[in-house]
Design a protein around this nucleic acid. Structure first.
Lengths: 352, 352
DNA sequence: TATCGCAGATTAATCGTTTAATCACCCGAT
DNA sequence: ATCGGGTGATTAAACGATTAATCTGCGATA
């Protein structure tokens, strides 16, 4: 234990009162005269009293710690999530215990198990794609995507996709390539759904799944994007900034200028998006808000499970749940080259 | 509390023995007959006994939790660190509580404070650049760079720089540009020191600090790399993959082919390094090993501070401390273009 | 005057484990 | 027959806080 701490009792004897009174004064619960309470507080501050979490946890049955379970910590989005959750949690008086599931479902289960054993009051889970969260023994907030059943809060990925597509279509693009990674991901599918939803008549889009391609041609293989440009594609909408980056560099490497000859968009506004050349047009989730909502819901559920039901079944906390995403327009998108004509155009906007 | 757990006493009464005996049997400490121990274990397993961390922590004074303090969670290297530390810690039976300092020194201090209040047994700190860790009240392992006083374990950044430079010089490069971000970073300075150490006679290198440039020309400004190429620079050695990515895209955007016309190297083997085109030549730290060593040292210090000295001063755990980095050669480096001659060459290798 | 009510404080039990101290007992040696 | 030593188990005291129940005066009411 790190605390070199004085005990509750000491401050009690110092003032010649009982430990219970000190506890009451500090927590403001029992009946303590204003003056005594004031004196107690000042002495507590003076000797630097720090309550023992262990003692409190033992008595109250609450550890004031929540767990954060992530599909794979090495996910580049992780820092944002962790930072936001940590901030929201510590604002609410909770500590955050991390558990990495290393992308493995079995490990995820055991990670959850470990958290439970450590006595967390609740947990925030960002599930591995496609995973359903089984019945754990404490309140759980799930951050996935609004369309997933059991989801608690999430960014409105679908609408994010819609915004991206509107932007692109508004610029005049008529042939898009959507770049996804894995079709099993709910988040990716929502994003793609949103993208497609905004495609009015005359706009064509096909989807390319990177993992499928890599299964055939090996990791890090070419995506054949230059060929797509030759076929008339003028915009590439990736489902994550990582894929967008891949697309961007592949195009550049092939001598195709972005955004003059082809536009590229990403998702999530990851760390590198503003620093690459051209800076990536992308869409950002309001992680702070998502985290706040998730933690709020969780804390509330924790309170409820303590008060009402003795048996906290497997309640998944729920809330207002859909947080808008924000389009960030940078340099990787522009109007399509004027010499490229959409193949089958029913109604096209005038080209510049 | 999440645990719906049966108590130690229950399993004791079930078998008609005392709680102490159960505790002894399960921990293997006291004297318990083999048969009884076996019976106890089986009953424990049967009813799914999970010891209460709170009870144990209260009694033993150890929480079996360590804190992880990071300079800024949004650092792209963070996922690697967190994942490795979490793995090492949980292998050693410890939980990991995160604390983000959001890049702010004051916040870092309060984050550490919060961890202490939560009763962590020790903490791993990856200090914000240039920060010295003040006297906290528990064992601390510092992961920075070997040259920093008080450092516990770290990658051998200096030697990493040396390896990169050897690679580049070995390929025939004679004029390099080193790209750093902030001169206050010990890690960056070590890397640069290593880079320069491998430059034999006839090799020139200048250093460019991005933050300085951005102070003048604004965030995301051009680094003027194309101009450098025109001046005869054939290789760009960035001090992090993030800067390398910036350099790569800026060069590509300027129509300069990598690696045919200029080589680019990074540091840390971040997530995007293998997927960009051309894939980045970089150098990787053995995070798993670093984390293991850090946690080992920490756990040992925790044991020691519990046993010997009642007052755990502010000991910084120490160990064998220097973990080699591994060069990862990919596609962003090649021999320099043959038409570029080093300006003042005293002894040059034959060009292809 | 006896009693009621209440503010202000105390007692004591409790949370679940660990662990030092103690005890009961059996066996072999003196 | 007694003592010593070892083995296997029990007792009981913490650890540090919370909290229901209790106690003590004191002023007001009947």
């Amino acid at each position: 234990m790190a605390r070199s701490g004085p005990k509750l009792t000491r401050i009690a004897t110092t003032l010649g009162v009982s430990a219970a009174t000190v506890s009451n004064a500090l927590s403001g619960k029992g009946r303590v005269s204003a003056e005594l309470a004031e004196k107690i507080r000042s002495v507590a501050a003076e000797i630097g009293y720090v309550p023992s979490q262990a003692g409190r946890a033992l008595r109250t049955g609450k550890s004031a710690v929540i767990g954060l379970v992530l599909p794979d910590i090495s996910n580049p989005l992780f820092p944002q999530i962790a930072q936001a959750i940590e901030f929201a949690a510590s604002s609410a008086g909770y500590g955050v215990l991390i558990a990495d599931s290393r992308g493995d479902v079995a490990v995820q289960t055991s990670a959850i198990e470990r958290l439970i054993e450590r006595g967390v009051d609740g947990m925030v889970i960002v599930p591995r794609r496609g995973t359903r969260i089984a019945d754990v023994g404490c309140p759980v907030a799930v951050v996935d995507t609004p369309s997933t059943p059991g989801n608690t809060v999430a960014a409105d990925h679908w609408d994010g996709g819609r915004q991206i597509a509107e932007h692109l279509v508004g610029l005049g693009h008529r042939r898009l390539l959507i770049i996804g990674n894995n079709p099993a991901s709910n988040v990716q599918n929502d994003r793609i759904g949103g993208l497609r939803s905004a495609m009015r008549e005359g706009v064509q889009a096909e989807t390319l799944w990177i993992e499928r391609l890599e299964l055939l041609h090996g990791k890090g293989c070419s995506l054949g994007l230059a060929g797509k440009v030759a076929e008339g594609v003028t915009a590439f909408a990736a489902v994550s900034d990582l894929q967008a980056l891949r697309a961007l560099t592949e195009l550049q490497r092939a001598g195709i200028h972005v955004p003059e000859q082809a536009s590229v968009t990403g998702f999530d506004d990851l760390i590198w998006s503003p620093v690459v050349t051209p800076a990536l047009t992308t869409i950002r989730m309001d992680m702070a808000r998502i985290a706040t909502l998730a933690v709020e819901a969780l804390v509330q559920a924790i309170g409820a499970s303590a008060a009402e039901s003795p048996s906290d079944g497997t309640p998944v906390a729920a809330t207002i749940s859909k947080v808008p995403m924000q389009l960030v327009v940078r340099q990787s998108t522009a109007r399509p080259p004027s010499n490229v004509q959409p193949l089958n155009v029913s109604e096209g906007e005038p080209q510049p």
